[in-house]
Computed example of a mutant assay.
Amino acid sequence: MTPTSPRAATRAPHHAQYDETLRRGILDEATRRLRDAAPETLGLRPLAASQGTSTTAIYTMFGGKTGLLAAVAVEADQQLAAALRDSLRYDSVESDMRSLCRTYRRWALENEGLYGLVVGEPVRTPRAGTVDALWREPLLEVVDAAVDEGVFRSGDVHETATTIWASLHGVVSLELSVWRSSPSAEQYFETQLAAILRSWAAGSAGGAARHGATGTDGVAR
């Protein structure tokens, strides 16, 4: 029998510690650090050190920084989806739509770094490829109910939901980048939300522009 080399003997127990508990710890800590920070600010060495391990563990379990960011994006997607789902009370589609949109804004403001990971690009993982975003499901559900109940005019549900999201993302992105310290930021959002609901209301044949002009700051009036 070939004797085990001292080097191999010391390495095996180390890799044996790369378990789900360590993976979860790294992922949770990375998610916490990226809550309000850009992806490029995440350092792998200090992250690994915070979990009592080395960067080898991150490369072994996540495939490096790209794989780790993809895992954080999936985690953030699940968190946003849960927040949106929890905002629904199912008393009326109008109130659910308002509540969902306001929760979307609040989550983005409280998790700016994660928000960029969730909506910036399609979430991709090294093994699974592109991952369907879970956070879209509550929005699709509410839009589908609004069309079904005649609150929104008939149309393709996916197209309607995508258009509504585009408006939400636009006004939220402006708040994050331009209006963050403005006392009028919330009112800008509420004005845009009212315009969104009017533009898709049953009997409306056009967009928000039919109900008022768009100001120079980009918010529909």
Rank of each mutant, 00 (worst) to 15 (best):
P3S: 10
T4L: 15
A9Y: 09
T10Y: 11
A16D: 13
A16E: 14
Y18S: 04
R23P: 09
G25M: 10
L27N: 02
E29C: 03
A30L: 06
A30C: 08
T31N: 05
R33W: 06
A37D: 11
T41R: 11
L42G: 01
L44Q: 05
R45F: 04
A48N: 00
A48Y: 01
A48S: 01
A48D: 01
A49E: 14
A49W: 07
A49G: 12
G52Y: 07
T53N: 01
S54H: 10
T55L: 03
A57L: 04
Y59N: 09
Y59W: 04
T60W: 10
M61F: 03
M61A: 02
G63N: 07
G63V: 02
A70V: 08
A73R: 01
A76K: 02
Q79D: 15
Q79G: 02
L80S: 00
L88I: 13
L88H: 06
L88R: 07
R89I: 10
R89C: 05
D91V: 15
E94M: 11
S95V: 15
M97C: 03
S99H: 06
L100W: 03
C101I: 02
C101A: 15
Y104E: 02
Y104Q: 01
Y104W: 07
R105K: 11
R105P: 02
R106M: 10
W107Q: 01
L109T: 08
E110M: 11
E112M: 10
E112K: 06
E112Q: 14
G113Y: 01
L114A: 07
L114P: 08
Y115S: 10
Y115C: 04
G116R: 09
V118Y: 06
G120I: 04
P122F: 08
P122C: 06
A128K: 13
A128E: 14
V131S: 06
A133K: 12
A133L: 13
A133M: 09
V142D: 01
A145S: 13
D148C: 12
E149V: 12
G150Y: 12
V151F: 15
G155A: 02
D156N: 14
H158N: 09
H158S: 08
E159W: 12
A161W: 06
A161K: 06
T162K: 11
T162L: 11
S167V: 08
S167P: 01
L168W: 01
H169F: 15
H169L: 15
G170A: 04
G170R: 14
V171E: 13
V172D: 03
L174I: 08
L174W: 15
L174K: 14
S182G: 05
S184F: 15
A185Y: 04
E186G: 13
Y188D: 08
F189Y: 10
E190Y: 02
E190G: 07
Q192R: 12
L193C: 02
A195H: 06
W200N: 08
A201K: 14
A202R: 13
S204Y: 00
S204P: 00
A208E: 05
A209C: 11
A209R: 15
A209S: 13
A209G: 08
R210I: 07
H211M: 10
A213I: 12
T214V: 15
T216N: 13
R221P: 05
